[in-house]
Design a protein around this nucleic acid. Structure first.
Length: 437
RNA sequence: CGGGGCGUAGCGCAGCCUGGUCAGCGCGCCAGUUUUGGGUACUGGAGGCCCCCGGUUCGAAUCCGGGCGCCCCGACCA
């Protein structure tokens, strides 16, 4: 993408409604614009990052054996009346009446709908287990939306649902997703700690929240000091293995959200316990027959007897993750994208657009990088070098390839790593080789 | 939903108490000159239902009433 043509409205100053760093940077970097309280438009740069994260989440769900489908955002109230949640959910649910006075709602989650789809299609224990997921916009009419995409009313969520014949099998499904979540967050460059959690209105009795430690997090959390530099995935099993030992070990190291943590019964001495704040990026639940029973999701068991299926649900806040990654990775100059989610791999900076030499070299590098499948943001604007550096740092592209008249004289370009500010003067050829390695 | 605050140019703000010489500043934007390795400097220019409705007044961005919107602190959630 040529920056001269890119719709990238960056800001020098910070809009005053933005309190936390991720919100400020997303506005300044031209990633999002607010359209009303807790509702955002995703501009091209922001959407690109959202898609990258979505893709990693999807790849890991697929690898874990879940199957993707897509359910609508608008749901009939009827299903929610069957589950009993139509009244329970309260004002957080956006209720809609259509032209025929039918009660509808904008889905805050999809347990009812997926259970309905499942019960109509699956009649035999032979078809179990099944895990289904989708990545769809949700709406929860939060009392107080805040912090940009971290607590929006409309947000993109990956929600998966597992169906099993008995509690033991459901536990395996839960553990499978547990591993998938740890792997997903690790691929996003995040350290997520699984914590014992309350189940809230979703219901159930086995539940973990995945928390990124951050000053600006909304959740109070407590964990064993050992979590701070633990690489929980180092000796992790692979999908399909018996996950029980791994699960027992990982959940054996204490970590709990403040709703769940009781100082009176804390298993840790004070000097071993870390009290911190965190961002909830994922939440998994095992809730048994909470929905399958009222909605009648029943299959024939091995002896022909009816069996109400055991269910779990598993959520990842995809749009929230964009903010969470920024909270975890930025400096005074702007965002520092991990390579896995960066909107562009390389920022190509022409320090003197209009100079025949730098123009020619830049265009050559631009085409060669693109030909190899590298996503390049080429700053060909007629701006001062300082403005270009500042914008590139703000946007956070992992590699900056800088071409200027001075270096050109001695046949070198500069390759800079955004995260470390490490710089190397190289020939254009070796810079290319380095980037394509 | 309780408490607090804000709404004036794309963004950040001043002006409001004490009504009229009050449509302003900085950044950004446009044109030109200049400059060219970390947000350059100068000149000129465009851009505003002063959130909306009503009231008071000779006169309202300013005072009064009512709405709407947004933000912050708390109780809830991916």
């Amino acid at each position: 993408m040529r920056m001269s043509a890119f719709f990238l409205p960056t800001l020098k100053e910070t809009p005053n409604e933005a309190q936390i760093v991720s919100h400020r940077l997303m506005l300044r970097a031209g990633m999002i614009r607010q359209t009303s309280a807790g509702i955002y438009a995703w501009l091209p740069l922001g959407l690109k990052v959202l898609r990258r994260i979505e893709r990693i989440v999807r790849e890991e769900q697929d690898a874990a054996g879940a199957q993707e489908l897509l359910m609508p955002t608008i749901q009939p109230a009827e299903l929610w009346k069957q589950s009993g949640r139509y009244d329970d959910y309260g004002k957080e649910m956006l209720r809609i009446v259509d032209r025929h006075d039918r009660e509808m709602l904008y889905g805050p989650t999809n347990e009812e709908m997926i259970t309905d789809i499942f019960r109509n299609a699956v009649k035999s224990y032979r078809d179990l287990p099944k895990s289904l997921y989708h990545i769809q916009w949700k709406f929860r009419d939060e009392i107080r939306p805040r912090f940009g995409v971290m607590r929006g009313r409309e947000f993109l969520m990956k929600d998966a649902y597992s169906f099993d014949l008995d509690p033991a099998a459901a536990r395996r499904s839960y553990q499978n997703m547990f591993l998938a979540y740890l792997r997903t967050f690790a691929r996003l460059g995040l350290k997520a700690i699984p914590m014992q959690a309350d189940t809230g209105p979703i219901g159930g009795d086995l539940s973990h929240e995945f928390i990124i430690l951050a000053e600006t997090g909304e959740s109070g959390v407590f964990c064993d000091r050992r979590w701070l530099d633990l690489d929980v995935l180092r000796d992790a099993p692979v999908y399909g293995d018996d996950l029980e030992p791994f699960f027992t070990q990982a959940t054996g190291i204490y970590a709990a959200t403040d709703e769940k943590h009781d100082p009176a019964t804390s298993p840790l001495p004070a000097d071993q316990l870390v009290s911190a704040r965190g961002i909830e990026v994922g939440h998994i639940f095992y809730f048994g027959t909470k929905y399958s029973k009222p909605l009648g999701a029943v299959v024939a068991g091995a002896n022909g007897e009816p069996v109400t299926v055991e269910m779990g649900s598993y959520g990842i806040g995809v749009s929230r993750l964009v903010g969470a990654v920024i909270e975890a990775s930025h400096d005074d100059a702007g965002i520092i994208w991990p390579d896995s989610v960066a909107p562009y791999q390389v920022g190509l900076v022409n320090l003197k657009s209009g100079d025949a030499g730098t123009d020619a070299l830049c265009v050559d590098l631009y085409h060669k990088l693109q030909a190899q499948g590298t996503e390049v943001l080429y700053d060909d604007r007629d701006e001062r070098p300082g403005a270009k550096f500042a914008d590139m740092d703000l946007i956070g592209v992992p590699w900056q390839l800088v071409v200027g008249p001075r270096g050109l004289k001695s046949g070198v370009v500069e390759l800079k790593r955004r995260g470390t500010a490490e710089k190397h003067e190289l020939s254009p050829e070796s810079a290319l080789a380095r980037l394509l390695a």
